[in-house]
Every structure is written in C-alpha cells, then in structure tokens.
C-alpha cells in the first residue's frame, strides 16, 4: 500500500509540471533545429491504433512542436516494435509495461499517459453479454483470446491470475488464440468467436466511446488491480537532447488546444513523468512466471 500512496504523491507533483514547462518548450522548440533524420515513433495496439486520421494528425502536431519530422510506425505485434526499438530502427515507442520491465536496462520512460487522472489502467476479463459465465473459473474448457504474448493486461496478468489460483494457464482453456489487439479481443468476444478474453481496460472503455453497441454485447467478470499505464519509452537510438524535448512536448500537450483535442481523441488526460517503480507489480508478476518462453 505504501507504493500506491507514493505513486499518487509523485503523480500529483508532476501533474503541475506541464503547465510550468510547456511555455518554455514552445519558445525553445525552434532553437533545436538539428534533428538529422526523422524521429521514428513506434505505436502498438496499447491504444486504438486503427484511427489513421488521428495518428497522422498526432504525428503532424508532434513534428510541428518538436521542429523535427516525426514518423509513426505501426506494427500489430508488440514483439515487432520491441525488436525494431532494440535494433535502433525506432527511436521511441509506445509499448506495454510488460516488455518495458523485461528490457528495462535498454529503455527509458519518456512519459506515461494519464487516464481518469491517474497513470494507471487495469486488466479485465470479459465475456459475452449473454454468457452465463460469472467467474474466470467458469471459463474452464472454453475458448479464450489472448491479446499478445507481450501484453500485461492481455496475457501476463491473466496467466499470473490462473497460476496464482493453482491452475495451469495452458491447460485451463480448451483452446486459446491470439488476436493481436485489445479491440479485436473485445470484438472476438462480442461475435462469439471466443468465450472470454483479457483486455486493457483503457482500450475497452475507449472503444465503447466509439462503438457503444459493444457495451451490451460484452461484460466484465473480473478486474485486476491497477497497473502502470503502458509508457512511451525511448530506445537506445534516441539522443539525450531529443529525449528531453519529446518529454517536454508530451508533458505540455494538455495545455495546448490542438494537443488537448488530440488527447480527447485518445480519451486521455495528458502525460506525466513517472518513476520506473510504477511497473514494479508487473515486474513481480513476470518474475513469478519466470519469464517463460513465448508461445
């Protein structure tokens, strides 16, 4: 419980940050013209990554604020983005907390999104709205959808949960599939392709804003504790100067009208700087599961 209160304190402190830093960033942006190549920003399905228009607008906004061209790179699988990041093909990426804790030595948190005023989200086990299933145990022998083997909410946490309850996660379901996206997992449950799925609460709720009909067709049966929100991390390829510039740009996004509009599209409040300690629970779960090989 102490970690929760500390995190809250830090978050509260840093929430004041953007308003102080943003004007300075805006003024100093034109001075840093030496960007060299375009900044390559990897995006994974930790957000609703199917809104091409939004992504274009966001990259334009980032380019204008940074004074450097920003290129958004999309990959369906977390592993692809992570590989590109580690092989220095990407400068920064928005990834899940789970791959971050696995590669903590090589990655640095640039900013963490704030949702409902907190840099937190959780994992949810969902079933079809008409399903008789009440608890995770009722899904035994059913069909289940994982999001991605590198997803905390869509893989690590439900694995940990089943493991914690003394069940072998690989034998608990008759068959499980990967959908490579939280939104797809919601759709798979809604369509009846699978009996249940584990999804990111932020993605699910944001999806409901765009597709309210899905609210009736899916139902949450279990919720995890709060975890650190998927962070935007810098890879080895990103220079230190760019790191601070990007950080201040992201922190100042909520105080800019256009940036605010983009945040509203994302259903986020803004960005803040968080300590890696935010992901300690994820790291602990990963350790408990002994970083088993990916399927």
């Amino acid at each position: 419980m102490t970690s929760w209160s500390r995190r809250t304190f830090i978050t509260g402190l840093l929430a004041l940050g953007p308003s102080l830093i943003a004007p300075a960033t805006a003024r100093s942006a034109p001075d840093r013209a030496d960007c060299g190549e375009a900044l390559r920003f990897g995006v994974t399905p930790v957000i609703l990554d199917n809104q091409v228009g939004f992504l274009n607008r966001w990259s334009s906004w980032l380019s204008a604020r940074l004074g450097c061209p920003v290129e958004l790179v999309q990959r369906t699988r977390y592993q692809d983005i992570l590989d590109l990041l580690l092989r220095e093909q990407l400068h920064l990426a928005w990834i899940c907390g789970y791959p971050y804790v696995q590669q903590q030595e090589q990655l640095e948190i640039l900013a963490v999104p704030r949702w409902h005023g907190q840099p937190l989200y959780r994992s949810e086990i969902i079933v079809a709205g008409a399903s008789p299933v009440q608890r995770l145990e009722d899904l035994r022998g059913g069909l289940f959808a994982w999001t991605d083997p590198l997803s905390n909410s869509g893989w690590l946490y439900p694995h940990f949960l089943l493991h914690d309850r003394g069940v072998d996660p690989d034998r608990f379901f008759r068959r499980s599939i990967f959908t490579w996206g939280h939104a797809r997992s919601v759709q798979a449950v809604a369509d009846g392709l699978v009996d249940g799925a584990a999804v990111d609460s932020y993605v699910r709720e944001t999806l409901l804003l765009y597709k309210p009909a899905l609210a009736q067709t899916t139902r949450v049966i279990e919720r995890s504790p709060w975890f650190g929100f998927p962070p935007i991390v810098a890879g080895p390829a990103l220079a230190a100067a760019h790191r601070s510039a990007i950080r201040s740009t992201l922190l100042g996004q909520s105080s800019d009208a256009a940036g605010q509009a983009l945040l509203a599209d994302l259903n986020l409040d803004g960005f803040s700087i968080e300590h890696p300690q935010l992901y300690v629970e994820i790291a602990a779960m990963a350790e408990r599961l002994q970083l088993r090989p990916q399927p």
Binding site: A145, I177, F178, T179, W180, R184, A188, D191, L193
Partner: peptide, 16 residues
C-alpha cells in the same frame, strides 16, 4: 495457426 487472421478475413466488413 492464426485463427484471428482467418476469422477477420472470413468475417469481412459485413460481420455477421
């Protein structure tokens, strides 16, 4: 063994 790929193909834009 990509069930979702096959499903999303067969499902198409019309869904059910």
């Amino acid at each position: 063994d990509d069930v979702w790929l096959a499903y999303s193909l067969l499902r198409g834009p019309d869904g059910a």
